[in-house]
Computed example of a mutant assay.
Amino acid sequence: MPDVNQAALDFLLTRRSRPAKTLKGPGPDRAALLPILTAAARTPDHGKLEPWRFIVLEGAAMQRMAQEIRRAGVRLGKDEADIVKAAQAYETSPLCVAVVEVQKPSDKIPPIEQTYSAGAACLALLNAALASGWGANWLSGWASHDRDFLSEALGLAEHESLAGLIHIGTEGATPPERPRPDLGAITTWVEE
């Protein structure tokens, strides 16, 4: 039998994201955030390409992002309720890490595997924040797919996209447990 890291397994079996609207200050300072980013950077990256990077948004940058969301929402003709909901994530949570997918040329690693790696970096960052005792949530939303918003608000280059936004802060309320997938319905066992 392999050695079991029971504490890590227990954490993974009980982990629960915290809605961004329930996050409040303080958020992690740079010293507290560095181990979280370090854990996220240990994500499998399919050929050591590191097809992702991090942008840490804090302080006034969070309020600026809320304003950028509002401008993008008006430009895109979004419903006012959608705009308010998207902006509130930046107005209420103290810190956000944008995980940027950076496609890199490779003869061995196809683009889709680089996309998967960027998604894995999001989950690793989320889990590291939760394991560190912070409340955290992985968001995307309509603005995450708007090229003008990505270039204007985050300075992303044309070959970059947004894999996710990990909001991190102090947990304001513990959310109730939610239904989980039925393993019997989503698992196939192949023996031959």
Rank of each mutant, 00 (worst) to 15 (best):
S144R: 01
W134T: 15
A72D: 09
E177K: 15
S117W: 02
L183G: 09
V100F: 04
C96V: 09
A157N: 11
A120Y: 08
P110K: 03
T115D: 09
N137A: 09
Q88F: 09
E177Q: 12
P111L: 02
E113A: 12
P179F: 06
D107T: 00
P111I: 03
T187L: 15
G77M: 07
L154E: 10
H145N: 13
L139A: 15
L150I: 13
D107N: 00
K78C: 13
E91Y: 07
K78F: 13
Q103H: 03
D148A: 10
I69Q: 08
A124W: 03
G73F: 15
E152S: 12
P111T: 04
A185F: 01
I168T: 14
A120G: 13
A136Q: 10
A89Y: 11
T170S: 05
A136H: 09
E158G: 02
N137E: 10
I186H: 02
V97S: 00
E80V: 00
L126C: 09
A87W: 03
G164R: 07
K85I: 06
S93A: 15
P179H: 05
I112G: 02
E91S: 14
Q103I: 00
K108Y: 03
A98G: 06
L165Q: 13
R75S: 06
L156C: 02
V99K: 00
G184L: 08
H159R: 05
A136R: 12
R75P: 13
L123I: 15
A66Q: 03
A118E: 12
L183S: 01
H167G: 14
R180E: 02
C96W: 07
W134E: 07
W134S: 03
S151Q: 13
S161L: 14
Q88P: 06
V84H: 01
L165K: 06
Y90V: 04
V74K: 15
T115F: 10
S132P: 03
D107F: 01
K108G: 02
L165A: 09
E113C: 11
I83Y: 11
I109P: 00
P179N: 02
W138M: 06
V74H: 14
N127W: 12
Q63G: 13
L156W: 10
D107K: 05
K104Y: 00
A143I: 13
L165V: 11
P105I: 04
N127G: 11
V100Q: 05
R64L: 13
N137L: 06
A128I: 01
A87T: 05
N137I: 08
T188A: 01
R180D: 02
L125D: 12
N137K: 05
P94L: 04
E113Y: 12
G77C: 08
E158Q: 09
S117K: 03
G169L: 04
M62F: 07
V74A: 15
V102Q: 05
A136D: 12
R180F: 01
A157M: 08
R180A: 00
P175D: 01
I109N: 02
A89E: 12
G135K: 03
W134N: 11
L76A: 12
V99H: 04
C122Y: 15
